[in-house]
Design a protein around this nucleic acid. Structure first.
Lengths: 179, 179, 179, 179
DNA sequence: GATGAATGAGCCTTCATTCAT
DNA sequence: TATGAATGAAGGCTCATTCAT
């Protein structure tokens, strides 16, 4: 399973060959079919694993979100940082779920919904501009997270903390300096 | 060429068969090889086309950028809107260049560089926070554009104008309402 | 392997189709690729087999050459006869190695070298004309053997013994009757 | 035609492509079919050319054979030398006729017959051993000529004269030094 | 539970050859 | 006479998948 994840993540669906997976696993091809119905089946299974892990992660972070700081920025940054940590620790399966699967779209939509909900709660305190569409903001955040994960986190250019703090500052205060 | 672009954009590299391309083009397979050296060759050619178009587009928008408004927001929004328009009008080839090709990473890096340069110019007027890393901001903008293009523009949910104005507001002023 | 040898020997490289080989072997094409990397690979393998057999044959005949007759003619005739026997018993692979392969030239050169060495030993007894280039004689003998093998041995016109005795007489005494 | 001969001689029948021939001839493929019925047709035509040239050559040398020396060796050597010259001057077409064509066997048989006839005439003078089968000798000579042509003449290692003199000495006097 | 051996299905590619102009 | 454009026919090779043991 891990081997398959690694291969799919590295080479994509088509360029990952059952023969290569079983070779690295030191078993034979029929053995593969003893445990998985088909190439597609194991792929879907991996996607399922990602979705489960993601779901658990979200649950976890909801439960442990009691540790709320007074500081809004810190609070949001921590949330985003958790997401980056999750992608960092589950890179291979995340690559599959986020970039290779057909469900990727759906998964990202749910991420956005999740973030939107969080923002909505924050918004109730009245700190946010009211003329901004939080659904779109959430989607934008997903876009940035996704992009940074691929281009900066997985390439080792930045840590989750660096990325999350940068995102948070940007999205909260924007570029413009008011005076 | 267009047919191939459509097929690659729809099904990806491996699930696009030469037989399907030529079938839709009402020619036979050997005819394909009369014009393209191989499946990979036409794919690379399409990527090349995208890169060229993108390059031209960037050039054009640089030249015609004389129409500078006083309004910073409007100015930036227009620039981003142009990018969305470009992706809208070149959807298929953009799908290939942005999401299917191996060069996608490089292409996006260049987009980011481009945006960073523009921001740097704007920054000279002293309107921006000085503690913000423009390189990361540019990369974030690329992430959002890419995400929106895929999830909202190509799905017909939003127009280039809507998306660009939303992005601009968000990135310039952020979520926080100062008072 | 034998089937392939037969086909290559009969039809040449290009006119031998994998499909024909596997058909005669009562297996399917993928099975072929289970045992051989490519069409060219099995061809090279057959050439290798020929070279090995030839090498072994040469070794063998060197070892068993203790049975030296006093009669020079008989001795040489036996040697040549052995070569014809070898080609007779390994016709298919010999056809490939001698006439179809790119290495044919090299193989024949080595045959010639071999024969030259033998002649050189014989020459030490002083029976041969001294003004004759043994290297060229050896090459000539190879030419005749090759020609006879193709035109007379494999066509069933003559036996190894007939051919070898004829060659030997000719090369030893020539046409001219001295008196 | 010359171009085709060159290509066939260089690459063999299958590896010679019509496209390559017409390319080198600076015409298009349909033009080829304007002059030749098929790939096979031009190949046969080239074989025909070789056969004709060979035939003419034989005729010529028969007619001009009045220049008979008293010296038997010289006489025969000259004949063989002429053959080598012919092959040297018609290398490409000879490669086809001697090594690539299906008729090669027949052609060589005729060469042998020709040589046998010549030998028979010489034999009438009673200079030759009587217990030698002239048909086989002729065939042997063809084998040597063929081999030398390929391995020594066309590789530039030896001149026609060198080769013919060597062959003649060998076949007339043999290796054995009588005393 | 595991495998050696085999295969169905299909894809890319090539090449001699022709048609309409 | 010459060609631009196209194709029929086929061949090598790959890969997910299965059967018999």
């Amino acid at each position: 399973m891990n081997i398959a994840a690694k291969q799919f993540a590295s080479y994509g669906y088509h360029d990952t060959k059952i023969s290569a997976i079983v070779h690295e696993a030191n078993v034979t091809q029929p053995t593969f079919y003893l445990y998985f119905k088909s190439k597609d089946a194991i792929f879907q299974e991996l996607i399922g694993i990602f979705k489960d892990k993601l779901h658990n992660h979200v649950e976890q972070s909801r439960l442990s979100s009691g540790i709320e700081t007074d500081d809004l920025l810190q609070r949001i940054a921590t949330n985003i940082s958790l997401i980056f940590h999750f992608f960092q620790e589950n890179e291979q399966v995340a690559r599959i779920g986020l970039f290779l699967s057909e469900e990727a779209i759906e998964i990202k939509k749910q991420m956005a919904k999740q973030i939107e909900d969080n923002l909505t709660v924050e918004a109730e305190d009245g700190y946010f501009h009211t003329n901004i569409n939080l659904s779109i903001v959430a989607s934008a955040i997903v876009g940035v997270i996704e992009h940074f994960t691929f281009m900066k986190l997985w390439t080792g250019l930045n840590t989750p903390e660096e990325l999350s703090i940068e995102i948070t500052k940007l999205f909260l205060y924007g570029l413009i300096k008011e005076n």
